[in-house]
Write a protein that binds this DNA or RNA. Sequence first.
DNA 1: TGGTGGAAGATTGCATTCAACCTTAGCGCA
DNA 2: TGCGCTAAGGTTGAATGCAATCTTCCACCA
Lengths: 229, 229
Amino acid sequence: MLHEELVANLRNMLVEGQIPPGARIDERELCARFGISRTPLREALKVLASEGTIVLLPHKGARAAKLTRKDVADLFEVVEGLEAKAGELACERITEAQLAEIAAAHHAMVEHHKAGDLAAYYRCNRTIHELIVAAADNAVLAGLYQSVTARIRRARFVAPMSPEHWALAVLEHEAILNALVRRDSRALAYLLGRHLRHKREETERAGFAADAEQTTRNRKARTRAAGEG
Amino acid sequence: MLHEELVANLRNMLVEGQIPPGARIDERELCARFGISRTPLREALKVLASEGTIVLLPHKGARAAKLTRKDVADLFEVVEGLEAKAGELACERITEAQLAEIAAAHHAMVEHHKAGDLAAYYRCNRTIHELIVAAADNAVLAGLYQSVTARIRRARFVAPMSPEHWALAVLEHEAILNALVRRDSRALAYLLGRHLRHKREETERAGFAADAEQTTRNRKARTRAAGEG
DNA sequence: TGGTGGAAGATTGCATTCAACCTTAGCGCA
DNA sequence: TGCGCTAAGGTTGAATGCAATCTTCCACCA
């Protein structure tokens, strides 16, 4: 009970950037913050390490994983594969109620685009993708999707977008919804893939992922300067 | 150092069936077997639980996950998605050396088929699939593939095959190798998917996965009768 | 005789403790 | 003055101990 919650909390801190990529993870401090001892904390760290969210250097402690460009590229490719399969299965299994829910989220998202509210747009956007995965009715797929997307959530849902790309993304979502309504799994898989590749190009341009060396240097500088997160 | 090894050992025991599905996991016994204390063992169990290999009931201990038909279906679908993406990427990135390696494994596999050596056939078969994934040059994909396929390894590589299906599987592999040589990613993804669906039908027929209730009853009976694994 | 309540035993989850290793500051020497 | 070595401090990894919970068995009662 406490355990899943602890893992979820830590993962959240990492995803939200409260613990920046590459930063050292102080067991003592986290124990104090959560009011627990090192044993359950370390169990949680092991789980996060197995997910790739953090890295464990033997006898040297844990660090928040810093994603290289290659890591980000790999993750995006995996998400592509998972979304393609999810879309395919969703076309076979989606219910009218689920479809209505997705359509509602889509229209809300379009409104947020019109209003220029990027944060709200991203929220709806993420909801749509997650609803499609949920419609696939595959627990394993959903679990992996959560785990993998968490690692690039900041890249996907925090990076700014140019007006042109934002508009394009909305159009793509229009087509995605359309394919889903038609239960056209081939088209849906293709559209989801293209949509994600565009997103990836966008984040590449935004320079979200940095080289390993660079990140390390930045981290050291930041740690000395700020002292805390 | 000890840790990854411990997780790998436990996972192996679970995959190999030394700890049968649904069986209770005795921490004490495992501690004695590995010559370690409960702390590192429990860390390893938490990791395996996060992978879905075992399930942790709070205050009731760990059990080896028992796969329902739905679980197996879900896992096969995910593997399909991962292999499709792996095949696609492999077509873009595979080197001549890697291709030669796969071709060699393929021809060895064909020989094992001719000789009727199912175990050796399965070894080559698995190698080929793993080499394709490796050729995709995507660490995240490879890691997930390992993790997911481990959970259905027994279903995939232990179940018997009828001569007809065995021959069909070989033909499918012939086509897969061909598509890879041609770098035809579309065809490769399709062929890999069909190949896996056939394999899944085979395991379904073999009745590899059981219903949850049934498995529980079997386990209890077995536990009382045998006393040990 | 069947069912319920409770107590003893066993097991889990967590805290604490101990040993091994890494880091780093200070000293000596070239 | 700069480099290397050593020792002290701190941190990690693992073992042990303790409280809380679950299971099981037996006595008691309807």
